[in-house]
Write a protein that binds this DNA or RNA. Structure first.
Length: 416
RNA sequence: GCGGGUGUAGCUCAGUUGGUUAGAGCGCGGGUUUGUGGUACCUGAGGUCGCCGGUUCGAAGCCGGUCACUCGCCCCA
């Protein structure tokens, strides 16, 4: 039995759960399509630089969560840990910079070698959108708005809150970084071990430390919003004004920083209390530098990604695969005829299941169990008279009628 | 990668201070009903007690390791 298991953090998805995933994805495709985002699909692995350069060499995703391997041509490849880099690479590759803006949606599996938890898997699905070629702050608002509508459509918006922040442009960030380091250096001996490490590598990430002592120190830390240059400040104001104009509630979390190098300006997260430690359900931001990091021209972009499994955990399921009609023969010798009948029913658009084995009693019990509405019964009498017996499983009434008549009856019923 | 919890039948769980053939409910199979269901009753199958090792006359229960899940940290969707 032991060898039959899946590898750690990688799960089978059984029909009932997969149905939820698909609904989550379908809603995303539908909403984003209305906003004229077109679906794109990119490979689940790429040359590893495609991810390493934009995400940052020191990022956790690259240093300890990567699935990097060499193929038989000795190329260093990486299973994708996120979708944005691949989409931008594909966009550049296809020469679509001639026609900006471009709006894309995508979904598919991502891979991160992390310690599994509820809502955190090593193979998980993301649905995301990317808007490329627009530096206008209204594009940020548009993208957040698509996310908002999406979560609303899923019926989840009331259990979520939107946090936003700005990381500013490069100049603002460098200025802020300098004062932050100066401030934190005074408390270096009191900071958590992780934060001391980050002080030299990626000081901004100290801001979202959950360590209580770190938090205390951070209360009086300089605020990034005070170190934005005029341009970055104006930009952020336009974004928040835009959200207000659309009636999208948000709160500014000055400590919200994204872990990936490619982010700048707007960063946002929709979070919930309902999933424990993995509360981020949809998150993204602006990544104007990404295209250049990949070796392309300077193309601005904004986007977000949503965790399909996490959203599914919050979504109600009404999965069923119940047939409109079940077919059962008095004995096994009628199964061939039933298969023939099945074809006509399927062609009429009905869902059908045949019960091949068991006694009549067993077959009816099974029909009840799966909640079928009708049964078509075939036996000696029916064959002789070239009819079928149609039984309404709710009322219990039966009639001997022609197959065509039965199809009409069933169709009328299931259309109501 | 770090720390805590859990691991008995397909599912939810009992299993008394270590002591014969490890239990229940639900579900599953067969039957009461050889052309008729949802109820009821009868009956059957299914467990190397996560895995490996140790302690013991004897381990599902104690000890060590390991694997998986879970909660938190880290990080993120």
């Amino acid at each position: 039995m032991d060898k039959l298991r899946t590898v750690r953090g990688v799960h089978d998805t059984l029909p009932e759960v997969l149905d939820k995933h698909n609904k989550v994805i379908d809603k995303g495709l539908k909403i984003s399509n209305q906003y004229c985002y077109s679906q794109i699909e990119t490979p689940i692995f790429e040359f590893s630089e495609i991810f390493i350069k934009p995400l940052g060499k020191s990022s956790d995703i690259v240093t300890k969560e990567n699935y990097i391997f060499k193929d038989r041509s000795d190329d260093e490849l990486m299973l994708r840990p996120e979708g944005t880099s691949g989409v931008v690479r594909a966009f550049l590759n296809a020469g679509l910079i001639q026609e900006v803006p471009q709006r894309f949606s995508y979904f598919g599996p991502m891979f991160r070698y992390e310690r599994p938890q509820k809502g955190r898997l090593r193979q998980f699905k993301q649905f995301g959108i990317e808007c490329l070629g627009l530096s206008n702050p209204m594009a940020d608002v548009e993208v957040i708005s698509v996310g908002y509508d999406y979560l609303q459509e899923l019926g989840l918006i009331n259990s979520l809150t939107l946090k936003i922040n700005t990381l500013g442009d490069e100049e603002s960030r460098l200025n802020y970084r300098k004062v932050l380091i100066e401030y934190l250096n005074d408390y270096k001996s009191n900071l958590s071990e992780d934060s001391v490490k980050r002080l030299s590598q990626n000081p901004l990430r100290i801001l979202d430390s959950k360590n209580q002592n770190d938090q205390k120190i951070l209360i009086k830390a300089p605020n990034i919003l005070d170190y934005l240059n005029q341009e970055s400040k104006d930009r952020f104001e336009k974004v928040t004004e835009g959200l207000e104009a659309l009636g999208i509630d948000y709160y500014i979390d000055k400590n919200l920083v994204r872990g990936l190098d490619y982010y700048c300006h707007t960063a946002f997260e929709f979070i919930t209390e309902k999933l424990g430690a993995q509360g981020t359900v949809l998150a993204g931001g602006r990544y104007d530098g990404l295209s250049k990091m990949l070796g392309g021209p300077d193309i601005p972009g904004v986007g977000w990604a949503a965790g399909v499994e996490r959203l599914s955990l919050m979504v109600e399921s009404d999965f069923s695969n119940k047939p409109d009609v079940v077919l059962l023969g008095v004995s096994e010798e009628y199964n061939t005829s039933l298969l023939y009948i099945m074809k006509s029913l399927v062609k009429s658009g009905l869902k059908v299941e045949i019960f091949y084995t068991g006694s009549m009693s067993k077959k009816f019990k099974r029909a009840n169990k799966i909640n079928a509405s009708f049964a078509i019964i075939l036996g000696e009498e029916e064959i002789k008279n070239k009819v079928i017996k149609l039984k309404n499983l709710f009322s219990g009434s039966e009639e001997l009628i022609r197959l065509e008549t039965a199809i009409e009856t069933i169709k009328n019923f299931s259309n109501n």
